[in-house]
Simulated assay, not measured.
Amino acid sequence: MKFITDVAPNFIITSNIFLLAVTNIHAANILFYIGGISTHSHRAGLEPLANKLAQNGHNITFFSPLKPIESHPNVTNFCPPGLKAFNDKFQHSFGVIGMQSRLKSKYAADLVSDYGTFMFDMGYSICEVIFKSKEFQKWVKESSFDLVVLDRSSIPDCIYGLAHKFGAKTISYTPISFILPWDSLTFGIPTESWWLPTAGWTK
């Protein structure tokens, strides 16, 4: 009994130190991307998750033209000035156009009424604004990420290339309640509009 009494405490302490030494604790570098066609609600749904991950020790960066709703000391915000200007212009111009269309018809869906052609063109313009930015080019050289979370509804297609450069895994999600024309390709969801209405295609 004396042997057990003398040895057991030391064994427990030694075991705990060993476990602490070999335990792999990894804080990931995570990038949240919300692009150039986005509004307050896009960030409102994602920011609590990002803040919680930051609180748990992960390194979080928000790449977004939207200002933080609630600032967090462990969350870094980045946005090239050109992308911010692009999104501000989009919100102002489309806000007027969209309201006029909705007053004429409750079925108005100007963003995708042409089967997504306008959105694809916007996506190309967003990528051009981002990749030509000197601030972005400098940021890419200085950054590294393990995971990139993409807001699909803000047309983040060129950011897949950025994730590839970082060697990062990607999570693609949509914060809106309907399927955009190209989401069937991203998520593997069939577009049988006879049972699942698709924005701009069903009245």
Rank of each mutant, 00 (worst) to 15 (best):
A28I: 06
P190A: 06
I130Y: 08
F136L: 03
Q137Y: 01
L196A: 15
C79V: 12
S64L: 01
F187G: 09
I30D: 01
Y173I: 09
D183T: 10
D157K: 10
L185A: 07
I176E: 08
Y107G: 14
Y173Q: 09
A199C: 13
F11P: 13
P65S: 07
F32Q: 08
T5H: 04
P197R: 01
K138A: 14
I130D: 03
I126T: 11
P81D: 07
P181I: 00
L19M: 15
A163D: 05
I25D: 03
A8H: 02
N29G: 05
G82P: 12
T76S: 14
L185D: 07
T14A: 11
C79W: 05
G161H: 05
A109G: 09
F94R: 04
K84S: 14
K165G: 09
D6R: 02
K169Y: 08
K165A: 08
A108W: 08
S143L: 00
T198H: 06
K67E: 10
S143I: 01
I17A: 15
P65C: 05
N51H: 05
Y115H: 13
I30V: 14
A8M: 10
K2M: 03
S41Y: 00
W201N: 15
G36F: 00
N24L: 07
V75R: 06
P81A: 02
N87G: 12
I37W: 00
R43C: 02
P156K: 03
K138M: 01
L31T: 11
W194F: 10
I171V: 14
G200A: 10
N16C: 15
F78N: 12
A44L: 09
T174C: 07
L49D: 09
A108S: 15
V140W: 08
E142A: 03
W195C: 10
A8Q: 06
A199L: 13
F120G: 15
A108I: 09
I37A: 06
F120E: 15
I4G: 10
E192A: 11
K2G: 06
P156L: 01
G45W: 04
H92L: 07
T202W: 04
R43K: 10
L180N: 14
T76W: 01
T198E: 12
T198S: 12
E128S: 13
N59D: 06
K132H: 08
A28L: 11
P181T: 00
E142Y: 03
H26C: 10
G200F: 07
T61S: 09
N74A: 12
H26S: 13
M99S: 14
N77L: 02
I189K: 03
A108L: 05
D146K: 04
Y33K: 03
